[in-house]
Each structure stands twice: as structure tokens, then as C-alpha cells.
Amino acid sequence: MGQKRSTFLFSALCFGMAFLYIPMLLLIIYSFNYSKIVPVWGGWSLRWYKVLFESEEVWSALTLSLKIAVMNATFATLLGTLAGLALVRFGRFKGRTLFSGMITAPLVMPEVITGLSLLLLFITMAELIGWPGERGITTITIAHITFSMAYVAVIIQSRLAGMAQDLEEAAMDLGSKPIRVLVDITLPLLAPGMVAGWLLAFTLSLDDLVIASFVTGPGANTLPILIYSRIRLGLRPDINALATIIIVVVTIGVIIAGYLMLRQQKQRERDMQMAAQEVVKLDA
């Protein structure tokens, strides 16, 4: 019985892993394919990497995407943190429930609708006040901020809720005015949440195709828009190369983050064990 179940679990694991990783593996392999027609094997080669690096279009799309992602992440973290603070720490103000409901709406709203409504807003604004005159990097950034801010607010909210309020009260008791408490205590303790929020906002922005294609204008192609428009004309080997590079970068990032987190946790455990052992020694 036990044997049977473990075979079942093992095969389920294998299928799951295969389903997740075989497509990526294929992509990586085909990125080294010499042949111009993707599914036909033409031998190992770095040809498409060379094509990719020589392509002006890809580079400018990548720069645009990174620019938007950084701006978006920074502003979304700022606004999302403020929203989270307002929701958790400012007590019960009028309309709090409405506010907390509305701030999470972008999380559940279909992207198509968010994109469409933002496009309508930009067009109306251009008609009325003449800004934004041209859609592009600014409109995409604004659009991204609106939805990634909601994610940041949720992260900050949950971190704040888990953070005991007595630390802030203690600071106030020791003579800090509320703004000082925010700078000295709340923000340093929120820092990990803000970093997580920034990274999430960055990723969301880098990843977004739907909203960006609604609000973009002539000439402003983000990386996802570029990839999608090229793929529409059929599979292309240089896009495989680009995807492989992205996979490698992400993998390295995840490994570094995981290593740092593990090290920090181990250090913490060691510290706590040391403190406990000292007490035992003193008692003896």
C-alpha cells in the first residue's frame, strides 16, 4: 500500500515537473538551433544570439521596458506603502471599507478592462487638457502604477497587520512624534515588505502585455509587445535566444535571493540558540 502510494506520488511529481520544465528546455535547445525554421534542427550554433545582440529594435524595447519597470516599481511602492499605512494604522476613518475594497479592485479586474478604461481616460484627458499629447512611455508607466500599486498596498497591509503596534507605541512613549515614529520604527521594519513590493511591481510591469498594448502609442514598444508582434508572424529563433537569456537571468536572481534568505535565517537561528545556551550556562 505504502509502496503503491509512493509510486503514484513519484510519477505525479515527474509528470508535473515535465509539464513545467520541458517547454522551457525545448525553448533553450531551439535557441541554439542553426536553422531558420524553428522546428527543424540545423545543428548547434550561437547564430541567433548574434542576430539578437545586433538588433537595435530589441535593445530599445528592453531599455524601454526596464525604464518603465523601475519608475513603476518606485512610484507604486511609494503610493502602495502610503495606502497600506492609511488602511492599517490610521484607525477607522470614514469610508475606510470602501477605500480598502477599491484599492484591491485592480487585483481582480480583468486586464483588458483596466487597459481599455485607462486608454479611454488618456484619450479624454488629451481632448480636454491636451495632456498626454502622445501616448508612450508616460502613459504605460501611469497605467502600470495604477495596478501594481494595489499589489504593493496588499503586501504592506499584511506586513503591517502582523507587526505589533506596541513597537510604535513604545517609540511614542519614549518621546517620538508620529512622523518620527514612522521614520525611526515603522519604515525600517517595513523595509523587507517594501523591497518585496518593489520587486513584485518591477516584475509585473516587465511582464505586462495587455495593458501596455492598450495604452502605448506609436514607436513605444516594450519587450513583451515586441516579442508578441514578432511571434504573430510565426516562431522566430532570435526570440528563442532572447527568452533563454531571460530565463537564465531570472534563475540566477532566484538562486541569489534564496541563498541570501537562507543565510539570514540560519544566522538568526544560531543567534537565538546562542542566547538560550548562555542562560543554561549561567544557571549551571
Binding site: M172, D173, K177, L189
Partner: peptide, 30 residues
Amino acid sequence: VPPYERPVNMMFQSYALFPHMTVEQNVAYG
């Protein structure tokens, strides 16, 4: 009168030590 202007200090049940400061910094904070 707000807490930061009272001639009163409190020791919290949870101790409420600032986790990002050393013992010295905690005591020096006030």
C-alpha cells in the same frame, strides 16, 4: 497630552524592543 509629551514611560508586556537596533541603541532611543 500626547504620550510623547508625558513625563511617563512604560514597560510593555511584550517588551516592544526595537528589533533593528542593538541593546545600546534601544536604551539610548528616548
